[in-house]
């Protein structure tokens, strides 16, 4: 009895010793780890912000160069009274509109969509907006006569994709999260009616997804701002 008792106590002491050592190590480790990761996280965030600032500066510069180019060209055409070139320049400006390469405004709709507030369901996937929803809605807007569309400021061009990536959606290779704001220029009544009749929108609303649709006299749709040459580098003109 006495032997068994002291054996038990021995085991307990050993266990206690191991536990204390372990606890000490985890605390130390987690402190070190947290310090290290938060340091590298901060560094990363700073770097990302830096690159974003650079991007803005570069884009502003490109805009400035574009304005300069217009000036130079127009004065060149004026001074030399070059009709051939004038014609070419005019067709470029017309084509910009058709290609989605200029900021445009006009009458249309602003549609805002956000995930449902409620969490009271057995099918949580129905509470969020999916890439398929956006595809169908954009396609319905096109059917109803849309002339220009942007989602979260990304101009929808021929090869614009709408793909889900976890809780976000990728548009023109950029990642966006809710709320999704769609700007569309087109006949406001026809667009509005098509949204009201849309089975998809009605179903989403029934699940609690928040959708507001507003007719407006003026909505701005920004230009496509990605690299144009890269977007067509695999295409060869058929003569």
């Amino acid at each position: 009895m006495k032997k068994a008792g002291s054996f038990l106590i021995l085991i307990m002491y050993v266990l206690l010793g191991i536990l204390i050592a372990l606890q000490y190590k985890t605390t130390l480790y987690s402190k070190k780890e947290r310090a290290a990761t938060s340091l590298s996280l901060e560094k990363l965030i700073a770097q990302v912000n830096e690159e974003k600032k650079t991007e803005e500066e570069l884009l502003a510069k490109i805009d400035e160069y574009n304005r300069k180019k217009e000036e130079y060209l127009e004065s060149y055409i004026e001074i030399n009274d070059d009709n051939k070139l004038r014609e070419l320049w005019n067709s470029i400006n017309d084509l910009r509109m058709k290609a989605g390469l200029v900021d445009v405004e006009g009458p249309g709709l602003i549609i805002e969509m956000d995930d449902a507030l409620t969490r009271d369901t057995d099918k949580p996937s129905k509470l969020i907006i999916h890439d398929g929803d956006l595809r169908i809605i954009v396609n319905e807007l096109k059917s109803a006569g849309a002339q220009a569309i942007s989602i979260k400021g990304e101009r929808i061009v021929a090869m614009s994709e709408l793909v889900c990536a976890g809780p976000t959606i990728i548009i023109n290779k950029e990642r966006y999260a809710v709320p999704y704001v769609i700007h569309v220029i087109g006949p406001p009544d026809a667009l509005y009616e098509s949204m009201m009749k849309s089975d998809r929108i009605n179903r989403m609303r029934k699940e609690g997804i928040r959708i507001t649709i507003t007719k407006v006299n003026r909505v701005v749709v920004p230009k496509y701002n990605k690299n144009l040459t890269r977007a067509i580098n695999k295409l060869e003109v058929v003569k």
Partner: peptide, 17 residues
């Protein structure tokens, strides 16, 4: 520039892989 914009807008017959 004009040619590239026409291709981008889908206003040119194109071929490729």
């Amino acid at each position: 520039e004009l040619d590239n914009m026409r291709i981008f807008a889908g206003l040119t017959d194109v071929k490729g892989k």
